[in-house]
Design a protein around this nucleic acid. Structure first.
Lengths: 190, 190
DNA sequence: ACCAAGGGAGAACGATCGTTCTCCCTTGCG
DNA sequence: CGCAAGGGAGAACGATCGTTCTCCCTTGGT
């Protein structure tokens, strides 16, 4: 097993364990066991646990946003549909097995006050999500793109939190309906 | 110092420390130091750390919702204003010194997967908040109160998360504007 | 066959933390 | 004044965990 594959297996194990049980609840021994990579190699790939956590968050950030963007471009034909497709994707996510809320919100709550770098990773993820929403809103051609972006952003984050804590998957549909209403209000002449 | 005052001082110290730094980052020694209550008395009042955490969350739940409800009844004269006043109160909260997001979301992210009772406390808090919103919506006299409630609930939670992570206090105003749009859509004939 | 290099398994170390225990002092009552 | 009860300060204990170290085995080159 070469360095690259060891890194991949460690990250896979870290993502599964950290996301399911929380970062502080998972010891390096658990990651060693699940990944099948020895402790020595583990520390060669990631000199400290925090490095592993940051790599886990970084990879998840990229994959999560890619998955969202892929779904939107694959299913939406108009710019309004693109915005609404975000909420359909959220609903799919909420119904996945093992869904436990947003990894970044959870990490932020757990370690944001202890580790500035983990806090930063969470903020960066949310910034990138907002930026993506902003892009979708721009295509609508409204005059107040920033205002609408923040309103949609708020609906998205709210749905994620509510689904994550209360398990209410249907909140994606309620938020989608709210988004549709906001779109109607911001695009009166269609 | 009697038992009652010791309990209050412990809870005050716990709330300040847990909210500011996270639960796992705060040791019992820090709470002892800040409260001025000896370790022995501390364990007489709360036999285990988890008991203290649950008491902290319970008191905060009550106070937080009371503060919100007080502000709403004190400032709103119509039922529409009452709904919008929720977001004004959020804005006040976001601008407070030491604001660090929702204590329940943070605790849930930190210990929700480890302690079912802490997870439950977070869920209960969010349920109570939704129930309060539902009450405000009911007074509007709309036909689809549950749908509107969930839409507002999503906006509220989203604002809390965004303000908590990114420090964007203005998100309360964006969410308020979104709420106003939703109210208009659900109450077309005024 | 021999040796050096590196990797695996897990023990060891040091720090932290929740919880309990020890020791001493105060205090209120006879 | 004597003493029992209780409380304060903090040491002690046991568990956990991140990180390092030790020991042994494999392996590839000569």
């Amino acid at each position: 097993m070469n360095h690259e594959e060891a890194t991949r297996r460690i990250l896979d194990a870290a993502e599964a364990e950290f996301y399911a049980r929380g970062i502080q609840a998972v010891g390096m021994a658990a990651i060693r066991q699940r990944s099948g990579v020895s402790l020595k190699r583990l520390y060669q790939c990631f000199p400290a646990k925090e490095d592993l956590v940051l790599a886990y968050l970084s990879r998840r950030d990229r994959r999560w946003l890619d998955s969202l963007a892929c779904h939107v471009t694959a299913t939406a034909t108009t710019s309004e549909e693109a915005v609404l497709a975000v909420f359909d994707w959220l609903h799919d996510w909420f119904t996945e097995d093992g869904f436990r809320g947003c990894a970044f919100i959870n990490s932020f709550g757990e370690l944001g006050s202890t580790s500035p770098e983990i806090a930063e990773a969470g903020i960066r993820h949310k910034d990138r999500l907002r930026e993506y929403l902003r892009e979708l809103v721009t295509r609508l051609g409204t005059t107040d793109a920033d205002a609408l972006t923040d309103q949609l952003f708020s609906l998205v984050e709210g749905a994620i939190v509510i689904a994550g804590m209360s398990g209410r998957q249907d909140i994606a549909l309620s938020s989608r309906a709210a988004a549709a209403t906001l779109l109607d209000a911001h695009l009166p002449v269609r």
